[in-house]
Design a protein around this nucleic acid. Structure first.
Length: 581
DNA sequence: GCTAGCTGATGCCCG
DNA sequence: AACGGGCATCAGCTAGCG
């Protein structure tokens, strides 16, 4: 026997099919379409024996287990296909966006909409676990909520999907697939298409091997004033085109043709972005330009891509070696001219110009002289001037720009692996330090210590959010075999009632007494924190703050730029270095 | 018996 | 399933201490 509610559900599933056939969409968009909505609909449809004949040929919705890689994240999802239509998950778009922006705290539709300023202040909100109960009590409210979700999903897609729509016209992959594939795979598709068209044999991928990357070094720590930032525009693509570093297996010479075409396409988009009058057209062209920039840079990555049929590790190594040599020359020239190079990373560097370079014009002339030592086709450009910089470690620094904005870079300073209070404290600390108010920093430390002592901070300030990489089974197996240590997010996921899969996030905080607690034993889910009975481990969090302060204190108290000795200057992969084993 | 310091795994970030 | 390079955290281990 079916209850009234279940009859409703069957009717809705049938209505959904009717709607899809009637409206006949090319694209079906949804937030968490693959990882939730379709799985849910599929399960309910199976239960009610309602066929999901959504295809243009009347064919069914089909799903199979799949994984995708987005930077360091491995995401398990159920991949769905339906004949003649494209299924687009805005959650996946958000993942791609966040790889370069890294400014999202959560990937939920509501948080994403708020982040991008797409949320209507008057929209309906219902807690996820209360939707079912709310449906029974007030179905109108749930419908309003769902419709607000639809509006926000549409807005997110509008913001993030268009570059992929363009990609679908460039690559031999459908719109839906272009969103789910990595860039190297798409480049391989271009080469494959051309070789097949010309009826040429496809080479086998060469076996993967390690090779050295970019030149990264820190030469000074602490506070620097009047800092210039210069970088080589599109270093690796420029090296490939200038020195003809292309895959040896590419007998037809398709790779350089593609690279040149895409570069021109990007420059055209960039010009369009500048020229466009409508803000809409401008932001679209800018997004386009950004997509093609990433794509062009992926041509170097393709050389070292294990699955690429035309991959070439020798060529990849030549690209990075040339890059190290070129940027190394710039460093040498700058030093001979009396500049202090603060840090360098692959294609760019931060420096304090020599004392005789005072005005902006002098700085530009100075950098133009530096640029002149590089060969034709390699362009060194001045990217910015910063009144103050705090250099901490390789790839870790804070900048104060001329408009007083603070820019923080590096995993040690802005990682979401750090609790929010640590990031917030660092931001306030760097601002004081760089604007010449270092004496106020001890007071800042004390304020945060007091905040903890008096439980003035919300759980959001001290919880940690981590993404599960392994499945819970894999994790359990690894821990059992002592191939990894127990970790809090997995232990909490194991103890939780709701199911977890790789790619899901877990937010937790630490309870207990004293500094020496084992995190994976004292951790609780952030949702379990009760502001009326705050049980966070005050000593633990206070110690974290003090440790953080201790790391910066010597540099703050020293106050000036501190050159690192040659031995300390962590040089790695410097010019002339060989393969990293 | 205890702890500082090391090691390896993991997660996140830079270009 | 783009690349290499780097930092922080955590847990477990161990050398060296009292």
């Amino acid at each position: 026997m079916l209850s009234g509610k279940e009859l409703d559900e069957r009717a809705m599933l049938e209505e959904l099919g009717r709607l899809i056939r009637e409206r006949d969409p090319d694209v079906i968009e949804g937030h968490n379409l693959f990882r939730f909505d379709l799985e849910y609909i599929e399960a309910r449809a199976r239960r009610h024996r309602v066929p999901l004949a959504w295809g243009r040929d009347g064919g069914p919705l089909r799903g199979h287990a799949s994984r995708m890689q987005v930077a360091e994240r491995t995401i398990a999802y159920r991949r769905y296909e339906v004949h003649g239509r494209h299924l687009l998950d805005t959650w996946v778009l958000v993942q791609h966006y966040d790889v370069s922006a890294r400014d999202l705290e959560s990937y939920s539709l509501k948080d994403v909409a708020l982040h991008f300023g797409l949320a209507d202040p008057g929209r309906t909100y219902i807690d996820g676990d209360r939707i079912s109960a709310c449906w029974d009590a007030d179905s109108e409210r749930v419908l309003a909520y769902a419709f607000d979700d639809v509006r926000e999903t549409r807005a997110v897609a509008d913001l993030l999907a268009r570059p992929y729509f363009v990609e679908a016209q460039v690559f031999p992959y459908p719109y839906q697939t272009v969103v789910l594939r990595g860039n190297a795979t798409k480049i391989d598709g271009l080469l494959l298409r051309e070789y097949l068209r010309r009826r040429r044999a496809i080479p086998l991928p060469s076996p993967a091997r390690p090779f050295a990357g970019g030149y990264t070094a820190i030469f000074c720590q602490g506070v620097a004033r009047n800092v210039l930032h210069a970088d080589v525009t599109s270093l690796y693509p420029s090296i490939m085109l200038t020195f003809s570093v292309f895959p040896a297996k590419d007998e037809l010479g398709v790779f350089p043709l593609l690279l040149r075409d895409l570069r021109e396409y990007r420059l055209a988009a960039k010009a369009l972005a500048r020229r466009a009058e409508e803000p809409e057209a401008r932001s679209y062209a800018a997004a386009l330009q950004q997509t093609f920039k990433v794509l062009i840079n992926s041509f170097y990555g393709y050389l070292g891509f294990p699955m690429g049929h035309w991959n070439d590790y020798e060529a990849a190594e030549r690209v990075t070696a040339t890059g190290r040599e070129l940027i190394g020359k710039v460093v040498t020239w700058l030093r001979t001219r009396g500049a202090v190079v603060v840090e360098i990373d692959t294609d760019g560097l931060y420096l304090v110009p020599p004392p005789e370079v005072r005005t902006e014009e002098e700085a530009e002339r100075f950098m133009a002289e530096a640029a002149a030592i590089l060969p034709e086709g390699i362009r060194l450009e001045q990217e910015g001037v910063y009144p103050a910089m705090f250099s901490y470690k390789m790839k870790n620094y804070a900048l104060l720009d001329p408009d007083g904005r603070l820019v923080i870079k590096g995993s040690g300073l802005r990682s979401r692996g750090l609790e929010r209070f640590q990031r917030a404290w660092m931001e306030e600390m760097f601002r004081l330090l760089l604007s010449g108010e270092a004496e106020a920093i001890p007071g800042l430390v004390q304020r945060y210590l007091d905040d903890f002592a008096r439980h003035r901070l919300d759980v959001r300030m001290f919880m940690k959010t981590e993404t599960l990489q392994d499945s819970l089974e894999t994790y359990r197996e690894k821990v059992r075999a002592r191939r990894r240590n127990p970790a809090a997010p997995y232990e909490l996921a194991l103890g939780s009632e709701r199911p977890y899969q790789p790619g899901d996030q877990v937010s937790y905080y630490v309870t207990g007494e004293g500094v020496k607690v084992k995190v994976h034993e004292a951790a609780r889910l952030a949702t379990q924190w009760d502001p009326a009975r705050p049980d966070e481990n005050v000593a633990y969090y206070q110690a974290k703050l003090l440790n953080l302060w201790e790391k910066f204190r010597p540099l703050v108290e020293h106050g000036r730029l501190l050159p690192l000795e040659e031995g300390e200057a962590e040089e790695d992969g410097g010019p002339g270095e060989g393969v990293v084993e």
